[in-house]
Amino acid sequence: MFLRARVWAVLGALAVLAAACGGGGGETLTIYTSVTQATVDAVVTDFEEANPGASIEVFRAPTGEVTARIAAERRNGDPGADVIWLTDPLSMYQYQSDGLLAAWEPAAAAALPPAASGPAFWGTRVLYLVVVAAPGNPESITEWQDLVDPSLAVAFPDPRFAGSAFAALGYFGLEFFGDLNAAGAVQVPSPGDVVTGVAEGRFAAGITLEFSARTAAEKGSPVEVVWPRPAAVAISSPIAIVDGAGSEVRARDFIEHVLSESGQTAIGATGWSPILAGIPGPVIPAGVDIVYPEWDVIIEQQEDLIDGYASLFGG
């Protein structure tokens, strides 16, 4: 009797847990995203305030977990997402060419930089690849090419772990990474590790995301953002509707909101650069040049780039 009561107690607890972790109803808009939590929260809250009664569920995880989940779900039927919102365009280009995304154009489409979107996905904010250096830029780094210097300890993020780091490989090409290798530059797991390494003095400079370097500097880390010539590399954080989404109308409403002044302001307030001009957000110094990688070209060369890179840096 005693044992049986305990078994029922456990089963009951499991049932409660199952209910607590269960999914929502049909009218709910489900967003799969790799955008950082604070930013998603700010935008979703803003949307819910503008649309009382809207029900939104967010699945947030690093890009790899999001894409692996989608891949597994596609094998068992349809992906569970109505909207996909990612950190960089690499996976989105793939989904677009696989026909996973719904063809549709938001009202703000014309105001977006043409290179930031595909026909079926839309840039929402911009991440910049820049140089991080010690305060005051003691090594006088002004160009990307200055990183190719055997007398400097230089770090960069492994392009095989994340799309934003892959953008650097795609944009600069294998020759530049060959030069970096010859000059003794070191790969680390992520853009954040580059900033940490420079802050601790292990590296003199490195390639990283402007957000990572800026937020570390704001907290007091001894690092400085350097906007290198000829141009900082811009990476758009794309959003799209899944073809056949259960709540396509609501999905459109949501994306329109992300690209509205209100949604863009919410993005800017969480420290990321809004994609629309004239919205308050991180300040980019005057005279800085920005360039978007040619993703459609890079994607064609994806495997060759990765193989060539592996022969330089191992693995």
């Binding site: 690093p62 772990f161 790969q187 693995g315």
Partner: peptide, 22 residues
Amino acid sequence: TSAGFDTLTTRVYRAIAFSARE
């Protein structure tokens, strides 16, 4: 990573990062 040293498990994770590609 900095030594270019990898195992099957790190390769699984790298492949996962690009798993939008079939």
